[in-house]
Design a protein around this nucleic acid. Structure first.
Lengths: 113, 113
DNA sequence: ATCTTTGCTTACCAAAAGTGAGCAGCTACC
DNA sequence: GGTAGCTGCTCACTTTTGGTAAGCAAAGAT
């Protein structure tokens, strides 16, 4: 119910860009004001610099993020979400709401035995 | 903007359950009436039986899916989405919408050079 | 009897993710 | 000026995950 025939292919298209452990997290980190590599890295618990570097490149290729180098010294590298990435807000919002709820469910279940 | 401090952790919670290439696709497949293993497998292009079996177990553990065995003969195994999985509808909807739009963007970009 | 379908599992290999170290370029401090 | 620290990464390595192909028992169809 509510799922039409184009659901699977479109979902596939979206997941191909956005699935994975880190991409959405990185976008949120950027959107909340973390622009520098180390800053982003610190704001996302558990991510490694290797993965961050790779995911940022990916996001750049998908035109969701822009990398800017201000020649120094010191050289300053900044990342920012491009406007197009804002179109992912509903996805992030939905996931976040679900996450909040799911945590409630899990916590609730363990104490209600 | 619009992102509060609980965004990252909640997003993490959600992604831990739901991220990956296949889980949402499987839920949609189930929701659109595919209940049998082979049926699901055929409805999701590119998935392998190994991965499907593993993801189904995962989804079962997260209480999003129920596996039912009707002793036969023939033995009949059916999978169904549990009501709780419906709470993911907004996520799926948002992703699907984004996928539709993203495809438009990609296609558009290649012809508008 | 043989072939097909179902619901998987098992080996095997490849790709991705995580770990830890390191490195060039700069600053900060005494 | 020596050493310590930060930045934005990369490299080599191990571990985990994914994908591919085959196979298998139970049953049904021909």
């Amino acid at each position: 119910m509510g799922h039409c025939l184009t659901t699977l292919p479109s979902l596939r298209d979206a997941l191909d860009v956005v699935s994975g452990k880190w991409k959405l997290m990185i976008l949120v980190a950027l959107a909340t004001g973390h622009q520098r590599f180390r800053d982003i890295e610190r704001s996302i618990p558990g991510i490694s610099s290797k993965v961050l570097a790779k995911e940022l490149k990916d996001l750049e290729q998908h035109q969701l993020v822009r990398r800017t180098v201000q020649e120094g010294p010191p050289v300053l590298v900044t990342y920012e979400v491009l406007p197009y990435a804002d179109t992912l807000d509903p996805v992030i919002f939905a996931l976040r709401e679900w996450g909040i709820n799911h945590r409630r469910k899990i916590m609730g279940a363990s104490s209600e035995v």
